[in-house]
């Protein structure tokens, strides 16, 4: 299979690889996929309390090159966005940016799901009860 130059670039030089502290109240963690399906993405965001902007984003992905590239690209896009702006990222944006072929569209879907899961986790932590519990 031929990969686009952008997929190859993200595969060879993945951006923002790593992990943030799951227990940090400002960190949201999304983990999607399943090993049996050949894809697992873990995506984390760290949101600045005062500005509501995503300061940092990290990922780790078990999956094909397109899955790695999709999650790497997602972390690049997340940094500097507000939570609401982040929610507007669509899998089709990722497909277009990376020129993913039809058989790899599920990788972009997974990346969108990972973004949504990370934000949901962050929001859950920010509900009043959770804030009190972690304070």
């Amino acid at each position: 299979m031929a990969y686009s130059d952008k997929v190859l670039d993200h595969y060879n030089n993945p951006r923002n690889v790593g992990s943030l502290d799951k227990a940090d109240p400002n960190v949201g963690t999304g983990m999607v996929g399943a090993p049996e399906c050949g894809d697992v993405m873990k995506l984390q965001i760290k949101v600045n309390d005062s500005t509501g902007v995503i300061d940092d984003a990290k990922f780790k992905t078990f999956g094909c090159g397109s899955a790695i590239a999709s999650s790497s690209l997602a972390t690049e896009w997340l940094k500097g966005k507000s939570v609401d702006e982040a929610l507007a990222i669509k899998n089709t944006d990722i497909v277009n940016e990376l020129s993913l072929p039809p058989v790899k569209i599920h990788c972009s879907v997974l990346a969108e799901d990972a973004i949504k899961a990370a934000i949901a986790d962050y929001k859950k932590k920010r509900t009043p009860a959770a804030v009190e519990a972690t304070a």
Binding site: M31, V32, G33, A34, P35, E36, C37, G38, D39, V40, H106, V109, L110, D113, A117
Partner: peptide, 13 residues
């Protein structure tokens, strides 16, 4: 233990 995790896998299909 990864085998004990309940994976959310719908998106992968």
């Amino acid at each position: 233990d990864i085998s004990k995790i309940e994976w959310v896998a719908e998106a992968a299909h």
